[in-house]
Design a protein around this nucleic acid. Structure first.
Lengths: 119, 119
DNA sequence: CAGCATCCTCTCGGATACTG
DNA sequence: CAGTATCCGAGAGGATGCTG
């Protein structure tokens, strides 16, 4: 797992935008972060909130978020395994970003139709 | 070109986040939007601001942004072709989102190292 | 319960060449 | 200048099965 994903060689002013985007892309990252804003969740709790995500994908995304320092993974040594995921400080600092995404999505939900109607 | 890209069948509360993300993912969309916030730009002007983007990719991304109703494309019937790209109202409404991405990227630039240092 | 391993498909995105 | 067309590899992401 080369953790490469999208080289960000260029660093024009837009670089910061790109850099942030890298952390929350990946089909599930954004939503995972969003749900974790509510608090700590276990693996299957997250999974239930994300209808139609495979364990493989969920695991992958969680691992990436973890190695990006956005979430923390706490494993309890139990017979029925229990793993909790929570946001780190760095992760929590993304809240305004996630909120902005959520807010926009709520307002401008759906396709680009309303634009043409409004125009 | 099925314009499908990432089915968003599930619509838990996190759906809005996911939906917004769909519009600005794609390696260049975010940066393109960011630069267009400054004003109208021609094809090669955008290209110059995005070091190392191929025309093919730029064209693709611009076309997607256009069909998502975020940017407008104006073609001038001239011998040396001239095409201008600008944000639509819908596109401009993404400003807070882009700004949030930019702001976070500026602060938490680099890798997750500073987190561990700070901790 | 919370994974990991394997396989496989499909799309993203890069390189290159040609056009109005 | 601003594209379009074609080819191609890499990796994202899905399905399935096994495990501590």
């Amino acid at each position: 797992m080369p953790r490469t994903r999208r080289h960000q060689g260029n660093c024009s002013p837009g670089c910061a935008v790109e850099a942030t985007l890298q952390l929350i892309d990946g089909k599930w990252k954004g939503v995972i972060l969003y749900h974790l804003l509510e608090g700590t969740l276990r693996f299957n709790e997250i999974r239930r909130r994300l209808t139609s995500v495979t364990q493989r994908m969920l695991t992958t995304q969680l691992r990436e978020l973890e190695s990006d320092g956005l979430i923390a993974r706490k494993v309890y040594a139990q017979v029925p395994p229990k793993v909790e995921y929570s946001l780190t400080e760095r992760g929590r600092s993304l809240k305004p970003v996630i909120s902005a995404l959520k807010a926009w999505g709520d307002l401008h939900a759906g396709s680009a139709d309303d634009v043409e109607v409004a125009a």
